[in-house]
């Protein structure tokens, strides 16, 4: 089974997380598969027929349930690898010349919600559950924090990342964590398609120049800060406090 599917139709490409039985939790293999697909998109981006818009979504009921920490708990070398790979994936997605739209159905939690902040535009629905419950588990969302700050600004990022818990899609849209919340998943699907087509009708060079400038203005391509965040996140996961809290959590579920 392919862990990340890429479907290209004319000017619109769709990259989907494909691990629905695990609510698309980000494992080392899933991230590797996503990076491989993003690499293909980047490699072909120079062609005039290349897609202009990328929809980022997930197969199944949830966009992404977050990092698959259960799988890495017993191997001390694994968390730095998992978080380091996530850091590289976010940098590679942001550097794409495509306008990236996140279609956030069901849930986008922790690292999954971080991925939505890397997209240029994010749409969700009112009953979706999104946010960063990392601090509730004694872990630290440092790896995605730079993207959250760029999305909503420093003041709101503090509120969202330090409060923990989850937000409904509509609340997330009011805070600017999502750009728009639709009444339900069906409306979300049509709104994303409509938006993708509308953007894809624009000039390739104009879209590319605009996105490049936006990336320069907000320091998006500063890899060091994201890698430093991954290192910090991995360090906190390894702490006895976080290990105990994660084990208790996984045993109870």
């Amino acid at each position: 089974m392919t862990l990340a599917t890429l479907d290209i139709r004319g000017r619109v490409a769709t990259l989907a997380l494909n691990r629905p039985d695990q609510r698309n939790a980000l494992s080392i293999d899933l991230i590797a598969s996503l990076r491989h697909r993003v690499g293909e998109l980047a490699r072909d981006a120079g062609s005039p027929d290349a897609p202009r818009v990328l929809i980022l979504t997930g197969h199944g009921k949830a966009f992404c349930a977050g990092m698959d920490l259960r799988a890495v708990l017993d191997d001390p070398a694994a968390p730095p690898r998992l978080l380091g790979a996530l850091a590289e994936l976010t940098l590679e997605i942001r550097a794409l010349p495509h306008v990236v739209i996140a279609q956030v159905q069901g849930a986008a939690i922790g690292g999954g919600c971080g991925l939505t902040c890397v997209a240029d535009i994010s749409l969700t629905h009112d009953s979706a559950k999104v946010g960063f419950p990392e601090v509730d588990l004694g872990v630290c969302p440092a790896v995605v924090a730079p993207w959250v700050v760029r999305k909503v600004g420093g003041g709101k990022a503090r509120q969202i990342l330090l409060r923990g818990g989850l937000l409904a899609g509509a609340e997330a849209a009011a805070l600017g964590l999502m750009d728009r919340s639709l009444p339900g998943p069906n409306e979300l699907d049509s709104a994303v398609r409509e938006l993708a087509d509308r953007i894809a009708a624009g000039g390739r060079l104009a879209l590319r120049a605009t996105k490049e400038l936006l990336n320069r203005l907000d320091g998006s391509l500063d890899a060091d800060v994201v890698r430093e965040g991954a290192r910090l996140s991995a360090e906190v996961v390894a702490s006895p406090e976080a290990q105990a809290s994660l084990r208790a959590r996984f045993e109870s579920s």
């Binding site: 902040c117 535009i121 953007i199 624009g202 907000d218």
Partner: peptide
């Protein structure tokens, strides 16, 4: 309006 909102406003022609 902040970088995130400006990004979506400038890339969405709506």
């Amino acid at each position: 309006i902040g970088g995130g909102a400006a990004r979506s406003r400038l890339l969405d022609p709506g």
